Each structure stands twice: as structure tokens, then as C-alpha cells.
Simulated assay, not measured.
Amino acid sequence: MISRLRIAAVAIGLAATAGLAAYASSEEPSGGSAALQTGAQAPNFTGINNWLNSPPLDLKQLHGKVVLVDFWTFDCINCAHTIPHVKELDARYRDKGLVVVGVHTPEYSFEHDTGNLKKAIRQYGITYPVAQDNGYATWNAYGNQYWPAEYLIDQNGKLVYTHFGEGDYAQTEQKIRDLLGIQGKQG
């Protein structure tokens, strides 16, 4: 009897592992991409399902601008905590040469729904461009692994700064100010 129970437990474990692997391969990032390194040319937005708050953007057309790429998903509590700071950066520096692009890469199946994403954008009061990256194409191009994640790109399209998770808001803002050539006190 014990050996049958062990066999059953192993079979259930293998079936669960296979099921999780199938789920992961269909909905999760590949993890095979190397993380984008500081100084590297930033990859373009690729595989975007929809653009919200903006027509489609291309990094080539943003040449000469400082670009903050913010990877987020609307049901992530850490993302919810960072959104006010990202919105503040957008409001403060948009007219000075900063372009904020939120790349919404969903973690859960309900986050793939464009209607749900539009509702979240309204709820959070996001006015900057949002790229819906349901297939993880842009996420994988950046080698990203985190929500939230910020990638700061200079006027020549090179990655100059990254930050993962919450916090370091003043440091991120100072990097933006440095790239924009803004002197003096923050805020």
C-alpha cells in the first residue's frame, strides 16, 4: 500500500510540474534573454498588442528625448506603489524632454484583457503612453525579470540607468535631471 501511495504522489507531482511548465511557457517570460546592460543600445518596443494614450511609439522617433521605460502590471502592489512617482516624473519633466512609456506586461490571465487594462489606466490616472506587451516580446528584448522595473534611456538610445522594485525615487529623478541638463534643487 505504501509503495502505491508513493507512486501516486510521484505521478501527481510530475503531472503538476508538467502543468506548471506548460502554463509558464504560455504566459510567463522566457527568462532566456540576458539582462540589458548599461551602455547598450536599448531595444525597440516589439510585439506590442495595443498602444494606449498614444499612437505606436518607436525609439528611433524618440531620438533626442530621454525615455523612461517602466515595466508594470496593474495587479502588482509594488507597481501600484510606484505609479504615483512615475506619474510625477512624467508631469514634471514631459515638457523638458522626458518621455515616459509604461510597458504593461501581465502576470495573470485577467491582466491580458485590454478592457481591464484600460480600466486600470483610468483608475490610476495614467496619461503617459502605455504599451500592452501580452506576449512578453518587449519584456524579453530588455531581458527584464521584475515588476516594477525602470529603464532610463538617453537621447542617443543607450541605456544609462536601471532600477527594480520600489524606492530610490530621488536617485531616479536625479538621473533624469542630469540627462536633461537641469540644474538646481529637485522637485
Rank of each mutant, 00 (worst) to 15 (best):
A16P: 02
R94E: 08
T162M: 10
I126M: 06
T162H: 02
D95S: 11
G165C: 04
I182V: 06
P56S: 09
N156Q: 13
W72Q: 01
N78G: 08
K60D: 15
S25K: 14
A11G: 03
A11E: 03
Y128H: 14
T73C: 12
T114W: 00
R122S: 11
L68F: 08
E111G: 06
I77D: 07
Q186F: 00
G165A: 05
Q41K: 15
P29V: 11
K65G: 10
N78K: 07
Q132A: 12
C76L: 09
W72L: 05
A141G: 09
A15H: 03
G32N: 14
R4T: 09
G13H: 01
D178I: 06
R177A: 00
A120R: 03
A40S: 13
P56Y: 07
I7E: 09
H112N: 13
L20T: 09
Q41T: 15
V100L: 02
G135Y: 02
L117R: 03
A16G: 03
Y161P: 01
D168T: 00
L57M: 14
Y169L: 00
T73R: 08
S26F: 08
K60R: 14
A8I: 12
G143F: 07
G184P: 04
F45W: 04
V103T: 11
V67I: 15
A40P: 05
F74I: 10
F110R: 11
E107M: 10
Y124E: 11
G115C: 03
N134Q: 05
Q132D: 10
I7L: 07
R177Y: 00
G97I: 13
D178S: 04
T138C: 05
Y124K: 13
D75N: 13
A18L: 13
A34G: 15
I182H: 00
H104M: 08
N134I: 14
D90G: 05
V10K: 02
T73D: 06
W139E: 04
K87I: 13
V103S: 05
G143L: 04
Q155D: 06
S25W: 15
T73W: 05
H85I: 11
H112E: 14
G187C: 00
I12E: 02
Q183S: 14
V86W: 01
R6V: 15
V69G: 02
N50Y: 07
Q171W: 00
E150L: 09
I153D: 01
A18F: 15
D90V: 03
H63M: 13
L180T: 01
R4S: 12
P148H: 04
T114E: 09
A42G: 09
A22M: 13
I12D: 01
I182A: 00
D75Y: 11
E150R: 07
A9Q: 02
A22D: 13
H63N: 15
